[in-house]
Amino acid sequence: MTKSIETMWKEGFINETQLDVPKVNDLYNRKSQNLVDKLLNMFAINIKAIVIGSIVMLIGMSLIGAPFLGLYICALLIPLVVIARKELGKSNNISKGQSSFDYLVNFDHWLKTSIKTYAVYYRFFYPLFFIGMVTQGVVSKAGGKIIALMLEKFPTDILILGLPYYLAGIISLAFLIITYYADALYRLDLNIVYGRQFKKMEELLSDMKTLRNHA
């Protein structure tokens, strides 16, 4: 961007002749003037955090004797980083329109479209992540001891992939639940990290629409 969103926003408010300038300036002062910049910075930091986190996780998993799980999780995170960088790059092409309000509307549209794109991947990410964790747990020494203890307490000759049928059933049920609620899990995770900023965005758009309608 050749000029900061904050500068563009000020100019947009002043040049928006159909709005009452004092009211808009008051709205500008009460709300987060740099909301868009803050969100974009948060997205950029999140990408870096994923990259650094995956490296740290790989090292940590290797140190505790689970290097394949570390590699597996890294493999799951790589597409996420690619998607995130691609989506963030699209934000540079958002049309600012004729005013700050137009820009905010366009940014909100990009944001919602980007969230839908992430949601598609997370429908696969969460179930695959669960499978990786379960597989590591089953093949580990601790997992083997737990399975042996379960067979001792609840003996059975029916084994599925080396697991007692009841344990395999519990894992399968958990997998189906996670798969079904993958989108909800992503929305929950998203709300925890960005919920406060998204709420500010909604409030700002709502207030500006109200001012325009009463101008």
Rank of each mutant, 00 (worst) to 15 (best):
L63N: 05
G12M: 09
E11L: 13
L205V: 15
L88R: 01
M201Y: 15
A44L: 07
P127H: 05
A75K: 02
V36C: 11
E16G: 01
A49Q: 05
L39T: 11
K112R: 05
Y103N: 02
G144H: 08
P127G: 02
Y103K: 00
I14W: 13
I171D: 12
L151T: 13
L161D: 12
Y103R: 01
Q33P: 14
L211M: 11
D108C: 03
T113R: 02
Y103H: 01
N34V: 00
R30D: 06
N92A: 02
L111D: 03
M42L: 08
A49W: 02
L77K: 13
S140T: 06
T2Q: 15
K38C: 08
P79Q: 00
F130P: 07
L161W: 14
A174K: 07
L27K: 09
Y121Q: 05
Y181E: 09
R196E: 10
L161C: 13
L163I: 15
N15L: 15
I83L: 01
E87K: 04
F101I: 01
K209R: 15
Q136L: 13
Y28Q: 09
S99F: 12
I131Q: 00
L19R: 00
Y181K: 08
T7S: 14
F43W: 11
I45L: 00
N46S: 09
V193P: 01
V56T: 06
V193G: 02
I177G: 08
S114P: 12
V193T: 10
L76V: 02
V21A: 14
L111H: 12
A75W: 02
D26A: 15
I192K: 12
I45C: 00
F154T: 14
T210P: 01
T7V: 13
F13G: 02
M208K: 09
L205A: 14
I52S: 01
K48Y: 03
D37N: 15
A119D: 14
W9L: 10
A119C: 11
F101W: 09
K112I: 15
N46D: 11
F175Y: 15
A44N: 06
A174P: 09
P22C: 07
Y28V: 04
I55E: 11
Q18D: 04
I83E: 00
K31I: 07
R187M: 07
K116F: 00
L211D: 03
M208L: 10
G70R: 07
L163K: 13
H214L: 12
L71M: 14
V56S: 10
T117M: 01
L63C: 11
S62Q: 02
L63A: 10
A174H: 08
I171C: 05
V139S: 09
I14K: 06
A44Q: 06
K145Y: 01
I160E: 13
I73S: 03
Y194A: 13
L151R: 08
T17H: 05
M42Y: 09
K90A: 05
I83R: 00
K112V: 11
L173K: 08
L77Y: 11
Q33C: 15
T113N: 09
D157G: 08
Q136A: 13
K199G: 03
G132A: 02
D183F: 04
L27P: 06
F130D: 10
F124E: 02
L76M: 00
